[in-house]
Simulated assay, not measured.
Amino acid sequence: MHYESYTQARAHLKDILDAADEGRVATVRRDSGRAAVVDVERLRHYLSLVCPSKAEVVAEAGGWSVFLPGLPLAADGGSFDEAMEEMVQVLREYAEDWQDRLRTAPNHEGNWGLVQLIALSDDAQLRAWLVGAAR
């Protein structure tokens, strides 16, 4: 399902959303660009597979530390759960910073998929993504 203009897509919005819900390709052309409309849960699931967290969790000095190798993201907590909760907040802050200014920085611009995953996930999903790698 491909629409060559915003006006055409707007007239068929229900069809576009239905296509996305069914996993079909749905695109809209606007000026020289093209956008895809996809189901959030399908995209979130796919991103969780292609952007594994690689989180490392370490018990140290009576607490826990979590970090993501290759990224300037780390969190600490008195318990494993506290460290994970803190890391979810660190991820949310990173996604905000990326949207505001980091998306054009050479050492961060490649993190688009991670930022999309963060934005499309709730806290429980982010924690499961982190813990899945930390086992």
Rank of each mutant, 00 (worst) to 15 (best):
V58I: 11
G70I: 06
R101N: 08
G23S: 11
D97E: 11
V131F: 09
R101W: 14
A55E: 00
E22Y: 07
D100F: 10
R127C: 07
L126R: 01
A26V: 08
G33N: 09
Y6V: 14
Y94V: 02
R44T: 09
A134M: 06
M87Y: 13
N107C: 06
V28R: 00
P106T: 14
K14T: 15
G110E: 01
S121F: 06
G77M: 06
S121I: 02
R34V: 15
A55D: 00
E93K: 04
S5C: 10
A124R: 11
E4N: 11
V115L: 03
L13T: 12
L73N: 01
E109H: 14
W64L: 01
W64S: 06
A75Q: 07
A133V: 13
R10T: 02
R30T: 08
Q99C: 01
E22N: 01
Y6G: 03
G78C: 00
L73A: 02
S65I: 07
G113V: 00
R127S: 05
P106D: 15
H108T: 04
A75K: 04
V28T: 10
A128R: 08
G77R: 05
W64I: 09
S5Y: 04
I16R: 01
W129E: 11
D39M: 03
A128H: 11
V66A: 10
D123L: 04
S65L: 02
R10M: 11
A95T: 13
E109K: 10
M87N: 04
R101M: 07
G110C: 03
D81H: 15
A19Y: 11
A75C: 13
G110N: 06
V66P: 13
D31Q: 00
